[in-house]
Amino acid sequence: MALIQSENCFRGDNKLPTPQEEAGSAEESPSCVPGQAKASSARVLSPEELDRLGREGALVSGFKQMKLEKEAQKNWDLFYKRNTTNFFKDRHWTTREFEELKACREFESQRLVLLEAGCGVGNCIFPLLQDDDLNIFVYACDFSPRAVEFVKQNPLYCPERCRAFQCDLTKDDLRVNVPEGSVDVVTLIFVLSAVHPDKMKLTLENISRVLKPGGIVLFRDYGLYDHAMLRFKAGSKLGENFYVRQDGTRSYFFSKEFLAELFEETGFQCLTNDYVLRETVNKKEGLCVPRVFLQSKFTRPGQSGSS
């Protein structure tokens, strides 16, 4: 794997990673960053890394896991209260990396209907709305009511081009706010990892109801054996590849096999499904760390109709 000389926010101490530290350079477009590679198989761990995973110890107690699930929305709302809109970078790379955002329209003047599932404070939707070449309407939802309010307060928010609403994707029917079968593209970017694995299928079923036949889901999230996964200490593991951070938010690390099975069981067809591998350097700390993301595209089978 080639080396990328870029600043990263990983620290040299042993504290658990925050969401921002996990993301690191994840917000950069893989196609626009030199020295990265796509791979069909998971990263091979060193003996030291294997030993570290083997010393994770017992899982977090069932009582605490229930408490974390019950307080999941509160923990993400507190996250946005602490960090407001200053946490993640705007994703200016989405139209370059995911050509479906422009190519899936049947004719040039057609308005593209997009659902940003897990919109945060709008780091993806506002760069898209600023794209003069993209005729688009965006439905944007998030688990956190506070995040949704930040979206609505953004000067670029325009009800004629965007509708933001609070939604728990695991139980709130999207069709209350989004017409059934009306969406061309769903973006699911660093979102599904925050959902309990037992409820991921419910999330995908919910999304499927508003996606057109032939519509696309664009997925990018944390991959198996990413550096952030290996930094969790004993007492942080909730289940296989599933961990809790210091602030109570949770993160799952996907294998491509698990993700493909999850989507296929929900009626989707896989188009692409690859690991994105690269190394980042924290020059200040003298650290070189391996990053692993999973980038995939899935479609809801069927013929799309004219809009």
Rank of each mutant, 00 (worst) to 15 (best):
E49H: 11
L115A: 11
K102W: 02
G57F: 01
L101F: 02
W76Q: 05
E100Q: 08
F87W: 06
R52S: 13
A103Y: 11
K67C: 04
V60C: 06
T95A: 11
V121R: 01
E71C: 14
G54Q: 12
R105G: 11
D77L: 01
L78E: 15
S46Q: 15
Q110E: 15
N135D: 15
G118D: 04
N83P: 03
L114R: 05
D132L: 07
E49W: 02
E56G: 05
F87N: 11
L53W: 09
S46D: 15
F63S: 09
E49T: 13
W76L: 01
G62I: 08
F126A: 00
W93C: 03
N123I: 00
Y139F: 13
Q65Y: 02
L134M: 06
S109A: 13
D90K: 08
P127A: 06
T94P: 04
W93L: 02
L53Q: 15
E48W: 07
F79R: 06
S109P: 06
Q110W: 04
I125D: 05
D132F: 05
N135A: 10
R52A: 14
L112E: 10
K102P: 04
F87M: 07
H92E: 06
N83H: 03
E48I: 14
D90Y: 02
N83V: 00
F98H: 07
A117L: 08
E108C: 10
G118S: 07
D77F: 00
F126H: 01
D132G: 10
G120L: 01
R91I: 01
Q73V: 09
R82F: 06
S61N: 03
L114M: 14
F88R: 09
L53A: 10
D51M: 11
G120E: 01
Y139D: 09
Q65K: 12
K70H: 09
L114W: 02
M66D: 11
L53V: 13
K74V: 07
Q110P: 10
A72Y: 02
R82W: 10
I125G: 02
E69H: 07
N75W: 01
E100I: 01
M66L: 07
G54A: 15
K67M: 05
R82Y: 08
F79P: 03
K74H: 11
Q73W: 05
C124V: 13
